[in-house]
Amino acid sequence: MSVPFPSATEPAGSRTEVFLRYLAYFRDGVGRRVEAMSEEEARRSRVPSGWTPLELVRHLTFMERRWFVWGFEGQDVVDPDGDEVDGRWFVPTDLGVAEVLAAWRQQAAVTDAVLRRYDLGEVGRPSPRWGGAEPATLERVVLHVMQEYARHLGHLDIVAELGGGVTGEV
């Protein structure tokens, strides 16, 4: 069953709950599209830039880790840009769809725990993630991550449509 689009009229206990609902909706859309693909299709690029759906999911895993763990929480992260090689998204050949999706879901659970643990107005810890700038609030981080999910879900919709897969708000 797919996660419904978060209705503006559905009561929520907090702004954090609203953000968690949107993240769940975007993640569900990504997961359903990639799960519906064969291993071959998930590794196939249908766009001139060359990225694949599997690379996109792995990018989302690292993106969440960079923003919430390395950035907001200021934790040391080994290889925060491990989703890229020579400026391109990358998935090692020994990682299949199931492993990439499992790592992504595990990171999503970590992100959700961070959102539940802190107030949205709390400022992140200093870390190399900020490149010397003042850390952002958790609310700014989650808004950035939601726009990245929305954008990439749109990209994935196009790729899935070209491959005859799951698309749209279903």
Rank of each mutant, 00 (worst) to 15 (best):
E73N: 04
E73Q: 14
G74Y: 03
G74V: 09
D76Y: 11
V77S: 04
V78I: 11
V78N: 11
P80N: 06
P80R: 02
G82F: 04
D83Y: 11
E84T: 14
G87P: 03
G87H: 08
F90P: 00
F90R: 10
V91W: 03
V91A: 01
V91D: 01
P92V: 09
P92H: 08
D94K: 06
D94E: 15
G96M: 09
A98V: 13
E99W: 05
V100C: 07
A102Y: 00
W104V: 03
W104H: 14
Q106R: 15
Q106E: 15
Q107P: 00
A108F: 05
A109E: 14
T111W: 00
V114L: 09
L115E: 01
L115Q: 02
L115F: 04
R116G: 00
R117C: 06
Y118E: 00
Y118Q: 02
D119P: 02
D119C: 03
L120C: 06
L120I: 09
L120E: 03
G121K: 08
G121F: 05
E122T: 15
V123G: 05
V123K: 13
G124N: 00
G124S: 07
G124V: 03
G124F: 01
G124A: 06
R125P: 00
P126V: 12
P126F: 10
S127D: 02
P128H: 07
P128I: 05
P128F: 02
R129D: 01
G131Y: 05
A133S: 13
A136M: 14
A136Q: 14
A136Y: 11
T137K: 01
T137D: 08
L138Q: 02
L138T: 08
E139A: 13
E139N: 09
V141T: 11
L143I: 12
L143H: 09
M146F: 05
M146C: 13
Q147Y: 10
E148D: 15
E148M: 03
Y149K: 00
R151C: 02
L153I: 09
D157L: 05
I158K: 04
A160H: 06
E161M: 10
E161W: 10
L162P: 03
L162W: 12
G163I: 06
G163K: 12
V166W: 03
G168K: 08
G168S: 08
E169I: 12
E169Y: 14
V170Q: 12
